[in-house]
Simulated assay, not measured.
Amino acid sequence: MEKSVAQAGVELARFIEQHPRLWVITGAGVSTDSGIPDYRDANGQWKRPPPVQHGDFMASLSVRQRYWARALVGFKALREAQISGAHQALAALEAMGFVELLVTQNVDRLHQRAGSKRVIDLHGRADLVKCMTCHYQMMRHAMHSEMARMNPAFAVLNATHAPDGDADLETDFSTFRVLDCPRCGGILKPDVVYYGDVVPAERRQAAQAGLNKADAVLAVGTSLMVFSGYRFCRDAHSMGLPIASLSLGVTRADTLLSHQWRAPLTPVLTHAVKRLTLGQRALDTHGLPSSQNRQGASRS
Rank of each mutant, 00 (worst) to 15 (best):
N158Q: 10
P51D: 02
D121E: 15
Y136R: 00
R79Q: 14
Q112E: 13
Q88S: 14
H54D: 04
R113K: 15
M138I: 02
D127T: 06
N151H: 09
G85Y: 10
P152T: 05
H54A: 10
M58V: 10
G115H: 11
H135V: 00
A71E: 06
V73H: 11
D56A: 13
R113P: 05
Q45L: 12
E80G: 04
S116Q: 09
D56V: 15
L78K: 04
A69C: 08
K130E: 10
L102F: 03
A142E: 15
C134I: 09
H87D: 15
H111V: 01
G29H: 00
V99K: 14
Q82N: 07
S145F: 02
N151Y: 05
V156L: 06
W68P: 02
A126N: 07
F98W: 12
G55S: 03
L122I: 11
H87Q: 12
D41T: 15
R48S: 08
S60F: 13
G35H: 07
G44V: 06
G35S: 11
M139E: 14
E100K: 04
S116L: 07
R40E: 07
V107G: 00
H135P: 00
A86W: 04
R70K: 15
G97R: 05
R66T: 14
Q112C: 13
V99S: 15
A77F: 08
G27Y: 12
L157D: 03
A148L: 04
Q53L: 04
A126F: 11
A142G: 02
G74W: 03
S31D: 11
D33V: 02
S60W: 09
N158R: 11
F75C: 06
V52K: 01
A81Q: 02
P37V: 06
K117L: 13
A69E: 09
F75I: 07
V156H: 07
L72A: 11
H135N: 06
V63F: 00
